[in-house]
Design a protein around this nucleic acid. Structure first.
Lengths: 206, 206
DNA sequence: GGATATTTTTGCGTGCCGCGCATATTTGCC
DNA sequence: GGCAAATATGCGCGGCACGCAAAAATATCC
């Protein structure tokens, strides 16, 4: 089923996305031209825009893919698992660090995180990332509707769950990036965030 | 305190934002050039970019303002009010329709809603709207932290509340726009969404 | 295995955008 | 009225997103 054609396409897309992130984290978002990204992958500038509508979209593509995988992961969870447990686990699965990051030597890693942080501060990027999250949210809502037997068309429930879950992950990531020299592992933050949301976020006792 | 200078600035900004929305809803997002918007307000194209970094930002500006007002409204709510009650009411306050919409004759209003819907489908717009929501979310989180006596720097709680509230409003609005000939008033949808979130979004009985 | 159909890449051209910079104009203040 | 600060404008540049058509790569069929 997965012919040479599709595979190559997926590879090119991934390469472009990765190159875009890499370059932007290294030298800053607007010191990277589309031309540079294309060149790094060995493809014409015009081809870049066959894959992505904008530089920002390319950078956000990994975020999009990960978010989409969360929806897919939820569908894989056993049907008798509690909804919020399943959601938490589905999200957590996406945060095991890949080998290309794991293999980084420590000083390079620190510099890398700094670069990413700076990059994410770019307004144009934030919009695109949020949009990616919104696209994935629709998928997630569909998966939730399926699992809970609710109607996506008439009820807000599945969308609310998807939005809340997405927000939980977002806040956890933000918290993780904000605290320099991360003391708390991201997995713990995500679990914590989901727990609070599932509890209805009650006001703490004064 | 509010001198002529600031007032004029605010007026120009509002006029540009409104003109941008109006034109985009009327003839479609990319049939509107920055030049057109500037001309409609009687200002130079260069000046447009003194107020907004992009066409999309101008269109999203009203959304941003409304979201910021929600945070301000929360601060005005009595301190002894339940958190989620206060949040709901603060959000609701922003959805009383302004006179410029209320005064529209019915056929024009239908056409208007359609135009807005199409406009909001534009990817570039979605990103910018979401970014606006994120900016306001930070304000809201600060207000929540204040009210609940939690620490914005070390706890995720206030950000989670702000994100969930923002998501609730977003879902309600989406639901409202999606259902043609809106049967349910937006106020009811918002109240409903907040209630569900505050209850922890439990899975419905099967 | 070779011809044909389909998909993908590429080059080129176009219109618009975002913004830096210098200048003119307006506003606030004494 | 005059001076300092803020704001509006004109000009120009580099880059981006994308339509279109030709060329190259890949799949398909006999």
């Amino acid at each position: 089923m997965t012919g040479l054609r599709e595979r190559k396409k997926a590879e090119t897309r991934a390469a472009l996305g990765w190159a875009a992130i890499h370059l932007a984290a290294e030298r800053g978002y607007d010191n990277v031209r589309v031309e540079d990204i294309a060149e790094a992958v060995g493809v014409s500038p015009r081809t870049f825009n066959n894959y992505f509508a904008s530089k920002a979209e390319a950078i956000a593509s990994r975020h999009l893919d990960r978010s989409l995988r969360t929806a897919a992961a939820l569908r894989e969870r056993p049907a008798d698992e509690q909804l919020w447990v399943a959601l938490t686990k589905a999200a957590l699965e996406q945060f095991t660090r890949g080998p290309e990051v794991e293999a980084m030597p420590s000083p390079a890693h620190t510099q890398w995180v700094t670069g990413v942080r700076t990059m994410l501060a770019e307004p144009a990027l934030q919009g695109e990332r949020l949009r990616a999250a919104a696209v994935a949210e629709a998928e997630l809502a569909a998966a939730v509707a399926e699992r809970t037997g609710t109607d996506l068309a008439t009820e807000m429930y599945p969308r609310l769950v998807a939005a809340a879950a997405s927000a939980a992950v977002g806040v956890a990531m933000q918290h993780y990036l904000d605290s320099a020299d991360p003391p708390a592992p991201i997995e713990h933050l995500i679990t914590d965030a989901f727990t609070q949301v599932a509890a209805g976020l009650p006001a703490p006792p004064r």
